[in-house]
Design a protein around this nucleic acid. Structure first.
Lengths: 332, 332
DNA sequence: CGCCGGAATGGATACGTTTTCATGAATCTC
DNA sequence: GAGATTCATGAAAACGTATCCATTCCGGCG
């Protein structure tokens, strides 16, 4: 009667009501093992009648692991990651699996804590955007955790299934586009953890016979403030730059903001390309030219991978696309 | 040796290593009960030496509920909800509590499923943006679940602690502002579940001696497509409207998009105010006048409330603010 | 007819923890 | 100094499930 005092109906109650042993009840309810049609009927009827819901607690303890999947992201506030999360959730929910989420803020320490928490919960499957060096993941692998990385790979963990966008090509196409417009001093505004993109940036320039100016490569932490400072510093220290490639939507946002603050006009004074096609990209002034990645697909595929437990496909690479709008102009 | 084959160290191992009973080990490790300084020392040393991590599985089963908190949102992709989630995560993580997340898409059926899933997991605390009528939550309350609603309340569940923004005042201030600019035919673009705001809209008009034109109130589902259709339909059916109040950032986005598509200029042809101060609001053209709500605070407070388990403060109302930028102009 | 194999079934156990309870020792009170 | 109270301690039970194993039953085959 007491709202919280009523014991929940257990499989034992069902077994009694159906006049069978708990073992039999368990077998028919969990679908394993054999049972005669008649008893199956009785058990199911009893379960329905008593409104029985199996307790994940007992099952988890027995199986010695929690179902569901863990999800580790740098920042749920970032449009890219929130859409990534949406993809993971779509897959997980259609499989009936719960999702435990945590945000690392790109801080290896927080990441380690969250991994510890997942281990404590005996979660057995994780999709994560890794931020630490591969070391943090040692305990996870030793514990037999199934993990899939997404968006980037952890240093020194090449054997882990990973879903990434082909940002290498994305960067190259963008750089070629800017070069084609006559730009020579192109800056790259990166977040920590985007070393892959920075490398691609250098390589793209190199393959066109140019050398990257290291001073034009700015790195920011995961926070908006840090990103703004990096963007603003870039514009102030190097007023000679004519184009900026922003490694993510938040970086593009602050670059636009900083440019405006310094009375630099886009694209007249400086051209801008940013990663991620966000809905507001075509609403802002000017409409932004972007390198689009498919975040929801990435999340969905990663979740699929981790649920299938198939170790086969080591790395899935999804295409990027340069969407040309109005934020780039020929160098004047 | 086998990576996944090593049994994890249990409290029993610790007890043996420290030469005490498991009960004593449990007491010192969980901090309950008393133990002599000497044994406490021994147990802690043994635990550290064996790298012992208590299994949440055993504890959960014993306690008959899972720790952590459940989080139910309509759409993690929406900037407002993702920031809300961020607030919840901030609070939960600082309390060391895991978070299980699910998205309802504002579909009562999905909501019911997710509630069921949470019950199956024996989660005991959930913060949710309710979308169904209060009925869906019956099983949850009967099971003794601690729930806090956020952003809106469920019909017929006034006794549930709730964290909301003072959108009533927000709407009133916005309407007064528009009226002050000379606008008379003001449309409201709402999502399902925003009946509170629609009501506030009617009331605000009424208190100024005007009657709301029901045809100017458009309702959309949670998807972007539905929202776009609603916005576009509004503009096409009622070309006489001169101002639009959008009930959320996604609605504002599609309103801007639809207006542009129909060659309506903002704010020359139509003024626009939208709920939620998103970072791109000042980047777009024109910079958007918005009613800002504090999503992260809302999430944080809700998480706090559900963790404290204090039933006292029934409803927390956080302030809204009208931030005037450039998307409203006097009626011509 | 007797034996064997497979299917159906239920008892018992284990998963890892917390908590209750009983026990014995030590300290306190008058 | 005797009784009462506190304290530290460990054995055992419980949480709800899945599975191992032994038992029973039945039909088929030699």
């Amino acid at each position: 009667m007491n709202p919280s005092g009523r014991r929940r109906t257990t499989i034992k109650d069902v077994a009694e009501a159906a006049d069978v042993g708990v073992a039999t009840a368990s077998r028919v309810l969990s679908g394993n093992g054999s049972a005669s049609a008649a008893t199956r009927e009785r058990v199911l009827a009893a379960a329905a009648r008593l409104d029985y819901r199996p307790s994940a607690l007992g099952r988890n303890l027995r199986r010695r692991h929690t179902g569901g999947i863990g999800l580790l992201l740098p920042d749920i506030t970032d449009a890219f990651y929130s859409r990534l999360a949406d993809g993971v959730l779509a897959c997980a929910q259609s499989a009936g699996e719960p999702v435990m989420i945590g945000t690392t803020g790109d801080d290896p320490e927080r990441e380690a804590e969250l991994i510890g928490s997942l281990l404590e919960q005996s979660v057995e499957r994780v999709v994560a955007v890794p931020c630490g060096d591969g070391e943090m993941w040692g305990p996870a692998f030793r514990a037999g955790l199934g993990v899939v990385f997404v968006e980037r790979r952890a240093e020194g963990r090449d054997d882990v299934p990973t879903v990434v966008a082909d940002d290498r090509t994305g960067v190259r196409v963008a750089v070629e586009y800017l070069i084609g417009l006559g730009h020579r001093r192109i800056a790259f505004l990166a977040r920590h953890g985007q070393s892959q993109r920075v490398r691609a940036f250098r390589d793209a320039l190199a393959s066109l016979g140019m050398r990257a100016d290291e001073e034009l490569i700015a790195r920011a932490h995961a926070t908006r403030d840090s990103a703004y400072a990096a963007a603003s510093g870039l514009f102030q220290h190097r007023p000679d730059l004519t184009a900026v490639l922003a490694g993510g939507n938040m970086l593009g946002e602050v670059a636009l903001l900083a440019a405006r603050e310094l009375d630099l006009r886009v694209p007249r004074d400086v051209s801008l390309i940013m990663f991620d096609d966000v809905p507001w990209a075509e609403l802002c002034s000017p409409p932004l030219t972007v390198i689009s990645q498919p975040p929801q697909d990435m999340g969905y595929r990663a979740a699929e991978l981790v649920l299938r437990e198939t170790r086969r496909p080591r790395t899935v690479t999804l295409p990027t696309e340069l969407i040309i709008r109005g934020s780039c102009a020929p160098r004047r």
